[in-house]
Write a protein that binds this DNA or RNA. Structure first.
Lengths: 228, 228
DNA sequence: GACATTAGTCGCATTATGTGACTAATATGC
DNA sequence: GCATATTAGTCACATAATGCGACTAATGTC
C-alpha cells in the first residue's frame, strides 16, 4: 500500500496489534509504509489497519485486517480501546484497537510488506502507534489472570514448560517450576494427552491441552497487593 | 433533549455509564428520551451521550457528557470500548463507551431529565444499550484487583465496613470481616485518620483514607483459579 | 443495667505458596 | 558401555496466606 492522496479524513479505522511469542519475548506484526521515498523517511512501519467499507461490524473489520496481514490465521482477538490523540497513517480521527494473539510458531505474513518485530527490536513508530502498542501489551498482561490469554499464544497442545515460559514472558519474571505446576494441577485447567515430545536432548515432555471449562467460581478473598 | 430530526449519521458518539453505590447495589444514571409521545414508547431511557463538536479528544468528550448529566462531579472515568452493533439513539455508527464511578452519596443530577436507577430496577433499554451497561459493570469488576475502583465509589474518607460493603457489592458475595481487614492491613493500602463516625447505634467506626501509592510489585505465583 | 447493634481483634485450623533437592528419561562424548 | 549434560517431573518441608468462629469494645435503646 502506497501513500494515500491527501486522504479525506476517514471517521475511524480498526487497527490490529498481532502478538506472538518469539525468542523468549513478544513480537508484533508491522506493515511497511510507502517506499521510503517520501519526505517522512523516519517512520516506515505502522500497525496494520483497515477502514470500514460498508456497514461492517468492528469484529469483522478486525478479522479482515488480520487476514490481510497474516495471510490467514483465525486467531483469538479482543478489543483494547479507542484512541484519538495524534495522527493516524490512514488519516482517521479514531483508531479502534484490537489485539490478536497468534500461537507460537504460527506467525506468518501475507506478503513481504509485513514483518514480525520483537518488542526489544522495534523500528521507529509515531507517538500514537507506540502508545497503542504499549497499551495492547499491557491489556494482555492485565487479562492474564482472568482470561486464558497465555493459552492463546500456544498451539492446541503444548508442554507444561512451554506454558510456564509464556507466563514468564508475560509477567516478566521467573516462576518456580514446582509451584507453577502445583497451582495448575489444583485448578484442573489442563488435561494430559497421550503424546510426548522429544525436543532433542533431555527427557521428553508430555503434551497437554486446555481442559473443558468448568465454571469454577473464585471463592477466595480479595487481593489488595496488586492495586496500581 | 428532545427527539432529533432524523439525524444524519454521526460518525461516533461517546456514551458514559455513570455508576454509584445505592441501597447495597449499583445504580446507573440514565437520560429521559423524548416526551413519550413518539411511536416508540417502550424505550424512554438511554445512556447519556455526546457527539464530537470540534476536534475534542475522547477524554474531554466523556467529561463533557458527565458534566452535562450529573451537573458537576469530576469523577474517575475510564474507557471500556467501542460498540457498533445495533442502533444508537443519536444515530451514530460507533459508541465509544466510558464508565464513570461516582462516590457514594455524591450522585446528583443536572436536571429532571436524568435519573439514577438501581441495576435491579432498570427501565427497558435497547439491545445495544443493555449490552453496553452489562459490559461496563463487568469491566469494573474485572479491574477490581488491579485498579482502586472500589475506592472511587467511596468518599475520600470511609470506614472499613463501608469499604467491605463496596467489595461485597462488586463481587456479589459476602466476605469475612477479619480476613478482609487482615489482607488490607498486609497491603498497607489505607491509613487511619483521627476521625470517627457514629452512625446512630453501635460502636463508632474509625475513618480511613487511601494511602499513598507504594509501587508494590506482585511477587506471588500465578492464580489459575479464576480463568473464565 | 440488660440488651441490641455495630466495630474491631484474636487464635487456631486449613490451605496455598516458596524453595531446594530429589528422581526420570533422553542425547552426546568418550 | 558408561559418565555427563540436559530437560521433565515430583517430593518434602518451611513459611505465608486464608477461613472462620469466638471473643472484646463502644455506642444507643428500653
Amino acid at each position: 500500500m502506497s501513500r494515500e492522496p491527501r486522504a479525506r479524513r476517514q471517521p475511524y479505522s480498526v487497527d490490529v496489534v498481532a502478538l506472538t511469542p518469539r525468542d523468549n519475548e513478544l513480537a508484533v506484526l508491522l506493515e511497511r509504509r510507502g517506499d521510503g521515498a517520501g519526505r517522512d523517511k523516519s517512520v516506515r512501519w505502522v500497525i496494520p489497519w483497515t477502514v470500514s467499507k460498508s456497514g461492517e461490524g468492528l469484529t469483522e473489520l478486525s478479522q479482515r485486517a488480520l487476514r490481510n496481514s497474516t495471510g490467514a490465521a483465525t486467531t483469538w482477538t479482543t478489543q483494547v480501546g479507542a484512541f484519538s490523540d495524534g495522527p493516524h497513517p490512514g488519516g482517521s480521527e479514531l483508531s479502534i484497537l484490537y489485539v490478536a494473539l497468534v500461537p507460537m510458531g504460527q506467525a506468518t505474513v501475507s506478503s513481504e510488506n509485513f514483518e514480525w518485530f520483537r518488542l526489544s527490536d522495534l523500528p521507529a513508530l509515531t507517538e500514537r502507534q507506540s502508545q497503542m502498542l504499549q497499551v495492547s501489551v499491557a491489556a494482555v498482561r492485565d487479562r492474564l489472570d482472568l482470561y486464558p490469554v497465555a493459552f492463546k499464544l500456544l498451539p492446541a497442545t503444548f508442554t507444561l514448560s512451554e506454558l510456564q515460559h509464556i507466563y514468564e514472558l508475560l509477567l516478566g519474571r521467573r516462576l518456580h517450576k514446582a509451584s507453577f505446576r502445583r497451582a495448575l494441577a489444583a485448578a484442573a485447567l489442563v488435561e494430559p494427552t497421550d503424546e510426548w515430545r522429544s525436543e532433542g536432548r533431555g527427557r521428553p515432555a508430555q503434551l497437554y491441552s486446555l481442559g473443558t471449562r468448568k465454571r469454577r467460581r473464585g471463592k477466595r478473598g480479595v487481593r489488595f497487593d496488586l492495586l496500581g
